[in-house]
């Protein structure tokens, strides 16, 4: 593991309802690190707060206690150094595919020369040559998520934050997208925090997997994934994969059945 790009130290989050004052403890002293060029998957039962971890790193939520450092700098709000890919469709529907991809550099006034070449490259990376001037509603779910990833990568973020990005896709498309994401990673090696509840997906993608407990979310298990890269779907049937999957499933299952 290289130096830590993202460092969560004893992160706690309590939500307080403004009207009733009702407190919900979402996260309790969550510590995790993501090294440079690393893919880290965060697994856990639904409602365990794994998305909250991502939203705090993104700067959409503030931590109740603890620190979030990205490249050693505390997170104070959302910014282009932390690109987010949401589960739901979040492209700007009034912008064409091309305009969606160049939105980041354009809003930061980087100048056409700075991003035009990059944009052309990313249109090829996402395989949407010929669709540049289409609108998001004309694209399939998988295409939209590829654009959502490209519009973030073009900002060269320190870390890519992916919140169950393939969760809404059908099984076939999901598996294609996982392979595609690994191809993209092989080429550009972005640092990735990937949230999912799909154990196969987590092991297939990750260098390291963290498993969280049910609410309040804590880190329960951390495992290296020693599968060699580049990976193909064949690894899904390897004994290393099976062994790890059994262990992680056990760990999650005990959380789901906990009273």
């Amino acid at each position: 593991m290289g130096r830590a790009k993202v460092d969560l130290k004893e992160l706690s989050k309590v939500f307080v309802e403004p009207l009733t004052g009702k407190r919900t403890e979402a996260l309790r002293r969550v510590s995790l690190t993501i090294g440079e060029n690393e893919i880290v998957c965060l697994l856990g039962p639904s409602g365990c707060g794994k998305s909250t971890v991502l939203r705090v790193v993104a700067g959409f939520e503030t931590a109740s206690e603890g620190d979030v450092l990205v490249d050693g700098v505390p997170v104070t709000g959302p910014g282009p150094d932390r690109g987010v890919v949401f589960q739901e469709q979040a492209l700007f529907p009034w912008l064409s595919i091309y305009q969606n991809i160049i939105y980041g550099p354009k809003i930061r006034r980087l100048g056409r020369a700075a991003y035009e070449g990059l944009a052309e490259r990313y249109i090829d990376v996402v395989g949407l040559r010929g669709f540049e001037h289409h609108y998001p509603h004309e694209l399939s779910g998988g295409m939209k998520q590829r654009v959502a990833i490209a519009r973030v990568l073009i900002n060269s973020p320190a870390v890519l934050l992916m919140d169950e990005p393939f969760g809404a896709l059908d099984a076939q498309t999901r598996s294609t997208m996982q392979e595609w994401l690994l191809d993209v990673w092989q080429a550009a090696r972005p640092t990735i925090l990937f949230i999912t509840h799909d154990v196969d997906e987590a092991i297939f993608l990750a260098d390291r997997v963290y498993v969280m407990t049910a609410r309040p979310g804590r880190i329960k298990l951390e495992r290296e994934v020693s599968l060699p890269r580049p990976r193909t779907l064949d690894v899904l049937t390897s004994s290393v994969f099976m062994h790890l999957k059994r262990e992680i499933l056990e760990s999650i299952r005990s959380e789901v059945h906990a009273p």
Binding site: G77, P78, P80, V84, Y103, I107
Partner: peptide
Amino acid sequence: DQRLIEAAQMLGTRPSQLFYR
């Protein structure tokens, strides 16, 4: 959609640009 506002923010949109963008 709150998602679109968050998407704009994480792509580098400043609060004053949110209106127009």
